[in-house]
């Protein structure tokens, strides 16, 4: 039998519930290839998700898994990681999940620089609830609650994570799967809070209302708006409008939270014994 990524599946759960062409499955594949390439044991991996289409991801993989409440994947993950720092903790979130209802947890997890990998599947819409606009819906695009076009500015999650204190930040898309797999692998291996945002599609809830009805149209569009970081930096402000830079934005080594906490414990215990 071939040892491929299907070894990580809870096979009875397949085929999965996602719509035809949904990027969630593509990102799941990338995550599993990255894990497979590192060679982590299933027992030491904890995958935590919030609520939404993307959050169903945890039901399909044979790790210690948790599908929590909307926006809260990271604080649940934080509790797990602090209680047992040996565990490899991965939080998978959607864009509404991570950046709207979970926005506070996202910046504070970055601020602590806790050794958790956050993977955000950004399909720029609330897919499961029927296509309401999210904090990552591009300005001017449509949603069921933005029938006249979205006037909100969208977050730059990568910039947000980097400025909040993360160790590793990268962005890719579901078109370039090799790239996101590479980013995810680096993020998983990074000691500290690591973030990989993956620009993804939602042909049903985003595509239909934005004239990108098929998965192929959506992928073509994602390809057309994505530019590498190097190219992006050379664009004028006007040229940058409507485009999304991809690549690695941050990769630094700074003190990690669980280690800092363990040091506190060791020091105080020594001090108490010394008395």
């Amino acid at each position: 039998m071939i040892k491929d990524i299907t070894q990580y599946f809870r096979k009875e759960m397949f085929p999965h519930i996602w719509c035809p062409g949904c990027g969630n499955g593509i990102v799941l594949g990338a995550i599993l290839r990255a894990i497979h390439s590192i060679g982590w044991e299933k027992d030491e991996i904890v995958m935590v998700s919030g609520i939404g289409c993307s959050s169903r991801i945890t039901g399909y993989v044979d790790f210690n898994t948790m599908n929590t409440t909307h926006g809260r994947a990271l604080p649940f993950a934080t509790g797990i990681k602090m209680a047992n720092p040996k565990l490899k903790v991965i939080a998978v979130m959607g864009d509404g999940d991570c950046a709207a209802i979970g926005g506070n947890h996202f910046i504070h997890s970055a601020r602590r620089n806790i050794d958790i990998t956050a993977i955000i599947i950004n399909n720029m819409i609330y897919g499961m609830t029927g296509g309401q606009y999210s904090p990552l819906t591009p300005t001017g695009k449509y949603g069921s609650t933005a029938p006249y076009g979205n006037i909100d500015q969208s977050f730059d999650l990568a910039a947000l994570a980097a400025s909040a204190g993360a160790s590793y930040v990268a962005r890719g898309n579901i078109f370039d799967v090799s790239q996101i797999t590479r980013f995810i692998k680096k993020a998983l291996l990074k000691k500290g809070f690591s973030v990989v945002e993956v620009i993804s599609d939602c042909p049903i809830s985003f595509g239909r209302i934005n004239q990108l009805r098929t998965p192929v149209q959506m992928l073509e569009w994602i390809k057309s708006i994505s530019v590498s970081k190097k190219v992006w930096e050379k664009l004028s402000k006007e040229e940058q409008v409507g485009k999304i830079p991809t690549g690695e934005f941050l990769d630094i080594d700074i003190p990690e939270y669980t280690e800092k906490y363990q040091n506190i414990c060791i020091n105080i215990q020594q001090e108490r014994r010394g008395k």
Partner: peptide, 11 residues
């Protein structure tokens, strides 16, 4: 790599 459904395998 891009198959969202793990439905195609090339070996």
């Amino acid at each position: 790599l891009r198959c969202p459904d793990f439905a195609i395998k090339v070996e």
